[in-house]
Computed example of a mutant assay.
Amino acid sequence: MTVASPRRRRAPAMSPEDRRDSIVRATLPLLAEHGGNVTTSQIAKAAGIAEGTVFRVFADKKELIGACLEAAFRPDGLAAELTAIPATEGLHKSLVRAVGAIGAHVDRLGSLMQGLAASGYRQDDRENADGGDGPMRHLGPISEALSALLAPHDGELRLGAERSTGYLIGLVFVDRLAGRFGGSTADPEELVDLFLRGAGSSTEEGPQA
C-alpha cells in the first residue's frame, strides 16, 4: 500500500503588497536577533510560507533588509498612536502615554540597528540614496502628532506646545541613547516628571549668607 506524501501547505493568496508587508513584519524581529546573518529559511518559517515565496517578492536578502529598515523607520504607526491619545486625559497622563509610545519605538529601532551592526551588516550607497539623514528625517510626522496632543495644554507649558515638543522628543532620545552606552533608562513616569518639573530638588533653598 502506497502512502501518499502530505501536500506542501500553500501560502494563502495575498496581493503583492500584502505579501511584501507580511514578510517584512515576520523578518523584523529576526533581524534584531540575528542581524544580517538571518537566513531566508528562518524568514520563511516565521512568515509561514515556502522559502521560494521570499524570492518571488524580493530579489535577494539585501533588498528585503532594506525594506525592513524602511518599514522600521516609517513614522506613520507611531504618529497614529500619538494621535489616538485622548487630550481629555490631562497633560500628565497624556505625556506618560506619549513618552511610552515614543520610547518603545526608539527601543525597537535600537534593537534592530544593534542586531545588524553586531552581524557586520552595513548599508550601501544604494540604500542611503534617499537623503542620508538617518532617523531624523522621519521625525516630522511624529513631531506634528505630539505637538497636536500638547496644543490644548499650551497654557500649562512654559515654552508652549510647539517648543516643548522638540524638547520632549529630545529627552526621550537622549534617555535611550544613555541606555545604549551602559546607563539606565527611565520609565515614562520619571521622564515626564523630569520634563514638567526639572531636575532640581523639590525644596528650594535660598542663597546662603
Rank of each mutant, 00 (worst) to 15 (best):
T185E: 02
D175C: 11
D154Q: 10
E189G: 03
I169C: 09
L149Y: 06
R137Q: 15
H138L: 01
V172A: 13
G170F: 07
H138R: 12
D193C: 04
D193Y: 06
G198V: 08
P188I: 00
S143W: 03
L168V: 09
L150V: 10
L191F: 05
P188T: 00
L194C: 08
V172L: 07
I142V: 15
I169E: 07
G160E: 08
S147H: 09
H138Y: 15
R176C: 06
L159M: 12
A178N: 13
D154N: 15
Y167K: 07
G183T: 00
E189F: 03
I169H: 03
V174M: 04
S147I: 02
A148I: 01
E162H: 14
P152C: 09
L168S: 14
L150Y: 06
S147R: 10
A145F: 02
R163I: 11
G155W: 00
G198A: 03
A178G: 15
S147G: 15
F173T: 06
S164E: 13
G155S: 12
H138C: 08
D193K: 06
A199M: 03
L177E: 10
G198S: 12
V192K: 04
D187M: 01
S143N: 14
L159P: 01
L150P: 12
R176Q: 14
A145I: 05
D175K: 05
G160D: 10
L159Q: 12
S164V: 02
R176W: 09
L171Q: 14
L159E: 14
R163H: 11
Y167M: 10
V192G: 03
A178Y: 01
V174K: 08
G155Q: 04
T165L: 02
H153T: 00
A186H: 03
G140T: 09
A145S: 14
I142K: 04
E156N: 11
G170T: 05
R137G: 13
G170K: 13
R197P: 00
P141D: 08
R197I: 00
P152V: 05
G183N: 02
F195V: 03
A186M: 06
S184T: 14
L157M: 08
A151S: 14
T165Y: 04
A161E: 07
A161P: 12
E144Q: 13
L177T: 07
G140I: 15
G160F: 12
M136Q: 14
L146I: 01
L139T: 15
P141K: 12
T165V: 08
G155R: 11
D154K: 04
A178T: 07
G183I: 01
L191P: 02
E156C: 04
E156V: 01
D175M: 02
G179N: 02
L149T: 02
L159F: 10
V192E: 01
A186T: 00
H153A: 10
H153N: 08
A161Y: 11
D187F: 01
G155C: 06
